[in-house]
Structures are given as C-alpha cells and as structure tokens.
C-alpha cells in the first residue's frame, strides 16, 4: 500500500532546499545589506528628528500643534476638544513620551505609504494589466502573517526603526493603493469625456479631473492606512520600534494587566483622534462632488 502515502519531498531534500534558499538570502544580505541600510538612512534621520521634535519641545506647544492640525482637518470644535482631553489624560498617566514616539512612527509610515502608494494606485487605474499584476501582490501582503515578512526585513536591517517602518508600511499600504485605484476608476466617464472633448492631455486629465475627484476616496485610503499602522505598533515593537507597543509587549510577558490596558487605551485614543480628523476632512472634500440633477 505504498501509494497511499502522500507524495512528498524527502526529509533530507527538504532540508537541503531550505538551506540553499536561506544560504542564498544570507549571501544577498551580506552583499547588499549595507547599501540598503545606507539608502534608508535619510528616512531614519527624519524619523529620529520628528521623534525628538515631539518629545523635546515643551508639551503645551506640541499639544497645541497636534490639536491645531486636528482642528484644521476636521473644522470641528468637538473633535478638537476630544483630542485635547485625550492627550492631557495620556500625559497625566505618564505615557506622553511613548505616545509621541508612536505618533512619529505612524506619521512617517503614513507619509511613506502615501508617497509610494498613490503613484502605484494611479498606475493601476490606468491599465487593467497593471491592476491584474498588482492586485494579487496586495492580496498576498494583506494575508501573509506579518511575522513572516519581518524575518527577511530583520535579516537585512537588524532590529531598529527602519525595519519597523518597512514592516508597518508593507502592512498598511494595500488600502492606500487600492483606494487610489478605486477612486480614479470611479470618476464619472461623462466628466472624463468632457475633459477629452476640450483637448486635455492625459496629465491634465489626471491632475485636474481624476485626482481631485478621487481625493475623497484617497482620503479614505489614508485613513485606513493610519489605522492599520497603529494596529501594527505592537507587532513592530517586537523588532525594536519604541513607543506604546513596547509597554504592551512588556505587559504581556510579565502579566501586568493595568499597564497593558492603559497603553492599549492610549493607542485606541490616538486612533480615534486620527480617524475622526481624517474622516471629517474627507467628508468636507466630498461636499461638492455629489452630482444632483434637476
């Protein structure tokens, strides 16, 4: 009854295969690791600078700055007031510094995701073939357990901020790309036809019609991206990203219930502030985009 056994690679072959791939990757890391690390240095510098700015500046200034941005985005006094209270509470319970680190990481990750994600989203919207290629990659990125792609990232960069940012961006960028693509594809074909009829070049069409009309959807992508970055904070702390994630991790390891809950709540509070502010901004953008006939 030999045939009933599942046809599988021999144990020895499997081990050889793993060793070969791991070996090749290690070679790659050794050869290109330093170059890649150097390429990411400006990013790290910027993150460090932002962290310093938020932590070293007098807290009332930082508070006013953050609440100011929230208000400018939302134009809503209640959201701004909520943000003020949440930040004061965070400071009162001694989590100010960690919170600032987390805000810095999330800000940088979101910026990177926007800078990379929007052009990819545009490319996807412009060609069905491109969409066919990129979509499965995004599916992979969203379903692959994040620990798995932490491995090669850590192999190349070691522990620290840069691998953290990369891991977070990989996790958070898919909605950014998908919603940019969707937003552009949803633009009313009649409006595009009008743009064509007036002789717009394809760049003019993109910059004057498609992107402005896709902006509310792109904003939703940015919102999603921020939320997912925040969700990744705890995982990223495992590879050395400082911030609210680390105390949570510590709390898990030592069964410090209160510490875990407090830091968890701080993450939730920032998430709510960012979410409300960006959503309100998206709504404001959309105000005139609904076409009403009659």
């Amino acid at each position: 009854m030999d045939w009933i056994e599942f046809p599988s690679l021999g144990r020895r072959d499997l081990r050889d295969l793993r060793l070969t791939i791991d070996g090749a990757f290690r070679e790659f890391t050794r050869a290109y690791g330093p170059t890649l690390e150097r390429a990411f240095e400006p990013l790290e510098d910027f993150l460090v600078w932002l962290e310093h700015l938020l932590i070293e500046s007098p807290w009332p200034l930082v508070l006013i700055g953050i609440v100011g941005i929230v208000f400018l985005l939302s134009r809503n006094v209640r959201i701004a007031a909520g943000a003020t209270l949440a930040l004061l509470a965070i400071g009162y319970f001694g989590m100010w510094e960690d919170t600032m680190r987390t805000i810095a990481v999330v800000t940088v990750c979101t910026m990177v995701a926007v800078i990379i994600g929007i052009p990819i989203g545009i490319a996807m919207a412009r060609s069905d073939r491109m969409q066919g290629i990129i979509n499965p990659i995004l599916d992979l990125m969203q379903t692959m357990p994040s620990f798995v792609y932490l491995i090669p990232v850590v192999m190349i960069f070691g522990l620290g901020k840069v691998p953290g940012v990369i891991a977070v961006v990989v996790y958070a960028i898919p909605p950014m790309i998908r919603l940019t693509n969707l937003g552009i594809r949803l633009v009313d074909p009649a409006v595009l036809e009008a743009a064509d009829a007036f002789g717009s070049s394809s760049f003019q069409k993109l910059s004057k019609v498609q992107l402005p009309l896709a902006l509310p959807t792109i904003m939703a992508g940015i919102n999603q991206c921020i939320m997912m970055s925040l969700a990744m904070v705890v995982v990223a702390s495992m590879i050395g990203v400082k911030g609210l994630g680390q105390p949570v991790l510590q709390a898990i390891n030592n069964q410090y219930f209160t510490m875990g809950v407090m830091n968890g709540l701080a993450i939730v509070a920032i998430a709510i502030i960012f979410d409300r502010a960006t959503q309100a901004y998206g709504k404001r953008l959309q105000k005139h985009s609904e076409v009403i006939h009659g």
Partner: peptide, 17 residues
Amino acid sequence: RRHKTAMVFQKFALLPH
C-alpha cells in the same frame, strides 16, 4: 479639440469639484 471645437453634453458633465 482645444481651438476648433467645443461640446455641450446631455447630462452637463460639469466638473463637480
């Protein structure tokens, strides 16, 4: 298209933004 023609559409096709 830019200089010799201009078009008016049934459903207006204005830029809503």
